[in-house]
Design a protein around this nucleic acid. Sequence first.
DNA 1: TAACAAAAGTGAGCACCGCTCTTGTTTTCT
DNA 2: AGAAAACAAGAGCGGTGCTCACTTTTGTTA
Lengths: 239, 239
Amino acid sequence: MTETTPRQRARLETEAQITQIGNRMIDEGGVAGLSLRAIARELGVVSSAVYRYVKSRDELLTILIRDAFTQIADEVDAALEDERSVQALALSMLDWSRRFPSRWALIYGTPVPDYEAPRQETVVPGTRVMVALTQLIATAAETVGGGDPRNAGSHSASRPGAKAGSGSTDTTTVSALGPLRDGLKELGIDCDDAVILRTLSVWVAIIGAINGLRFGQFGPGFDDYEDDLVRALIADLGF
Amino acid sequence: MTETTPRQRARLETEAQITQIGNRMIDEGGVAGLSLRAIARELGVVSSAVYRYVKSRDELLTILIRDAFTQIADEVDAALEDERSVQALALSMLDWSRRFPSRWALIYGTPVPDYEAPRQETVVPGTRVMVALTQLIATAAETVGGGDPRNAGSHSASRPGAKAGSGSTDTTTVSALGPLRDGLKELGIDCDDAVILRTLSVWVAIIGAINGLRFGQFGPGFDDYEDDLVRALIADLGF
DNA sequence: TAACAAAAGTGAGCACCGCTCTTGTTTTCT
DNA sequence: AGAAAACAAGAGCGGTGCTCACTTTTGTTA
């Protein structure tokens, strides 16, 4: 059953070719280098023909974004099988970003103008890595903090510049983390607010660091120290 | 002396007009919305005439990037005059990003393809905020750590998932921070490696968090909690 | 004041882009 | 075999950055 006619086969093949060429174009020229006309040219077909397979450039972009999310998540998962640690997660992300800088920019850089990825299509692959990090930090909190994961992995003990009466840590935290907590719950994950906050801290630091490296915002000269830098960062964050 | 001829005056005025329109276009349509032809149209002039005032679209982009860096740095400086704290710095950055999301994307998002801002033109304004943060954290380390700023503001004491023999904290840290240390020295700032690392941690977290909020990477529902979220984050980082 | 040179503005044109629409061809299904 | 669906072609619309030869304006200088 479900016999694939040659027609369907050809169609799938062409679609695969298009996404493949699209991926290569992004790798070579960033998101700006993605041109349906150029793809048509490479396919040896007139430009309008491509629109039989893809509704618009944005639709192709959505596909490539989803693919990129899946790729990095697969790699991170593989890395975590060797060593379940925050450091391993961060380093595998860094490694992927180094090999596919344009794809990294595609998913963690500035969103494409006048276009937002349909959440229905991209949330699941797009959150896999963050979910993995959450679970990593949740288990880390358990094994350390014992019965009270509240302060496990947290180090708000010694904070130099904090004013005493600020009162922003415990009360308001709850509501601010609401959307994230809800999002995790939708994915079937239910964990403590302290874990969520801690995860968020580490997450934004990782993304920020890799973005800084990839986008050259720290200046030049880091080529040989990227891994060391991220390692030091993760360590400074307490992992 | 230095008399400004009407000719020069007109030229400067037109240049100012161009950057002003350019800024507005970016605000409205992101970096993709910046069109020299549209600027010419708005100026009531033929498209090629704009090239008398600006060499290329990229050059205009450089100007707008430098401006944006200066603007946010000015705002952060003003905020720090009221309250010298990491939180105030982060919140003023967040506020600026909220008012000028496209400009934020311009300077902290994906760099424009096939174009890198001439460092000579952008480093100084582009590093002002980070320098301010460095000094903030340096003084915080002094007032707390006393004679030894090494562990001040640092909390690598309790790190759950860290393996003992990792050895990545002290030895490799030095070389990995080299480029940053050099960059700071060029700007006349000389501080401890611990301070640099701590600054980097906080910096990437702030940038990562604001990027996440601005680019919608955390999902929807944060509109009313942005400040609280950043406050919680800064607190979690120990400030 | 008249002549001149520099600066500013013009308009056509090149090569690209995304996308649409009409026409013709080919394949598949009934 | 004929109808229907899928595919490809080609022209065309409006947009982009940028160049080049040319004219007009402007300020200075002889």
